[in-house]
């Protein structure tokens, strides 16, 4: 077991850790909508839509704004 943080990271440099951290933050704050992320969001939206008539109507009001995002998720292409 490592005795200090330098041993714990072994041969990895701070640059490697920095790159990994940057990639993590880029993905976390990304406004892109890959299919994987869209699929994670689907259960919540379905739950909301099936809760009542009122919530379903509310969700459908947002459909025009959501469509480009969903299209992008399924096709992988960003609309100009």
């Amino acid at each position: 077991m490592a005795d200090n943080f330098l041993e714990a990271y072994g041969k990895e440099t701070s640059r490697d850790v920095g790159t990994r951290t940057m990639n993590y933050f880029r993905e976390l704050f990304s406004l892109e909508m890959p299919l994987g992320r869209m699929m994670k969001m689907m259960p919540g939206m379905i739950k909301f839509a099936t809760a009542s008539k009122d919530t379903r109507e509310d969700l459908f009001k947002f459909m025009p704004q959501m469509m480009p995002m969903m299209k992008q998720a399924f096709t992988g292409k960003k609309e100009e």
């Binding site: 994670k40 969001m41 919540g44 939206m45 739950k47 909301f48 809760a51 009542s52 919530t55």
Partner: peptide
């Protein structure tokens, strides 16, 4: 409740 569920999932 429905809103909390959706926000938590999203």
């Amino acid at each position: 409740l429905a809103e909390i569920n959706m926000i938590s999932d999203l």
